[in-house]
């Protein structure tokens, strides 16, 4: 079994919003990457943003600045 590590997972209600997050973060060199939403989470969209677990404050501020609407943010071992 592959070893799991804690990570911040941000979910969105639409794929469009998830892909907007990816473009936004890449343009600003913000940490993280797009992944399929982990099966432990119920979310509106099947794409989620995975980032280091200590990036919550940085990313929530960035998403507010970028008017990116997110659904939930939590730390999961994935």
């Amino acid at each position: 079994m592959r070893a799991k590590k804690p990570a911040l997972v941000i979910t969105f209600s639409t794929a469009a919003e998830a892909m907007k997050m990816e473009k936004f973060c890449l343009a600003r060199s913000l940490p993280g990457r797009l992944i399929p939403t982990p099966q432990e989470i119920t979310a509106g969209c099947g794409l989620a943003w995975k980032a280091p677990e200590d990036a919550l404050a940085l990313l929530t501020q960035a998403m507010a600045d970028g008017e990116i609407h997110w659904e939930d943010a939590r730390v999961l071992s994935i």
Binding site: R33, I35, P36, L47
Partner: peptide, 19 residues
């Protein structure tokens, strides 16, 4: 095309997670 690229990245990521 945009969605397709995101899906393929997701597929390869998910493949890495398989036992």
């Amino acid at each position: 095309e945009e969605l397709g690229r995101a899906l393929m990245k997701g597929f390869l990521y998910a493949l890495c997670q398989q036992d």
